[in-house]
């Protein structure tokens, strides 16, 4: 019964994504533009944006959902394992530090450098977490907070020394943007993200066995900690690439899985596909909204956080008094 309902809802979400994508792609352009210019705008400008929105949305929400279950924390998000801050730090160095000494990087370098920064910060966190607590969820979260705080401090120092124009560039990047999208880069990102997403989806039933902690997962036949390590790596890859493509996008990683658990239940066989599709639909919606403001596109985080935070408060309010929120003792 509920399987059919879930399948129908998933199809509906797919339809929504396609509709949003097409309506964005083919929004009317001023008639004064020559047809070949129009074509260029659609295929060179809008198509990469649409693809980026889909990849970033699906990547961030899927990795957040897997992190929440692996770190046994329903409120974990990719920021918590420091991936965002590593990428942001490198972006800050590229946009502020190098800018101020007069070096400007070629356009492809920024996403690439951010990706390396994301992986590097993840690596540092993993090594630290292994030292302090054998990669236990608490150790990963603590190490993540420590490293993110340090990197945020470094970014704040860079802010302090930066000139006005590079500051504006960085602020824009830090608030997330789908405008740097570029077709070859997006396709390359898709080449990595889609197989990773596919792998996570393929193993999705195994996540259900992590709900009661690592010991129960082992008892019920999951090969831990191998599984945990692989999935942490997958999450790091997805978030690292997503952040490199679109800057740091606030909140959807935390909100979408959390909200979907209330709507479709806890079964990861459905939860993960729902997360990926809802994330994609949400980012397409954000892309679509950001165009409503004709002149300058709105930063992505501005929209996701403004819409997301009130909704999140509502979710918290609806679950008030639930065992997970009330202090015990």
């Amino acid at each position: 019964m509920s399987e059919h309902r879930h399948a129908r809802a998933l199809l509906l979400l797919c339809g929504l994504c396609v509709a949003l994508a097409l309506s964005y792609l083919f929004t009317a352009l001023p008639g004064s533009l020559a047809p070949d210019v129009q074509g260029q705008i659609i295929w060179q400008l809008r198509l990469p944006q649409v693809l980026t929105a889909i990849l970033v949305g699906a990547g961030l929400t899927t990795s957040a959902a897997t992190l929440q279950i692996i770190l046994a924390n329903p409120l974990a998000d990719p920021g918590i394992i420091g991936i965002n801050s590593g990428a942001s730090f490198v972006a800050a160095i590229c946009l502020l530090g190098l800018g101020s000494v007069g070096i400007s990087l070629p356009v492809y370098w920024l996403p690439l450098a951010c990706f390396i920064g994301a992986l590097f910060s993840t690596l540092v966190i993993f090594l630290l977490a292994r030292r302090i607590g054998d990669l236990s969820p608490a150790a990963v979260i603590l190490a993540g907070i420590a490293v993110s705080t340090l990197l945020s401090a470094a970014i704040a120092w860079l802010f302090w020394v930066a000139d006005a124009q590079s500051l504006r560039n960085l602020t824009f990047w830090l608030m997330g943007s789908l405008d740097q999208a570029d077709l070859p880069l997006t396709l390359a990102a898709a080449g990595v993200m889609l197989p990773v997403l596919g792998y996570v989806m393929w193993r999705r039933a195994a996540f259900n066995l992590l709900y009661l902690g690592p010991l129960q997962a082992r008892i019920h036949g999951i090969n831990l900690p191998r599984f945990e390590k692989i999935m942490l790596l997958c999450s790091a890859l997805l978030v690292g690439i997503a952040v490199s493509l679109a800057g740091s996008v606030a909140f959807i990683g935390l909100l979408v899985p959390h909200g979907l658990r209330q709507l479709v239940g806890h079964d990861h066989r459905y939860l993960l596909p729902f997360c990926a599709l809802s994330g994609a639909a949400l980012m397409l919606f954000v892309l679509w909204c950001s165009r409503l403001n004709q002149g300058m596109p709105l930063p992505v985080s501005l929209i996701t956080a403004s819409l997301g935070a009130p909704w999140f408060i509502w979710v918290l309010y609806r679950n008030r008094g639930s065992q997970a929120l009330v202090a015990r003792g």
Binding site: A72, Y211, Q216, I219, H220, S322, A324
Partner: peptide
């Protein structure tokens, strides 16, 4: 497939129902 092992405590940070627990585990 050959043994059942009940270790001491069960904890979850998620609001799973008993039906969920029995379905998943």
């Amino acid at each position: 497939a050959i043994r059942g092992y009940q270790a001491q405590g069960l904890h979850t940070a998620f609001s799973l129902t008993v039906a969920d627990v029995m379905a998943f585990f």
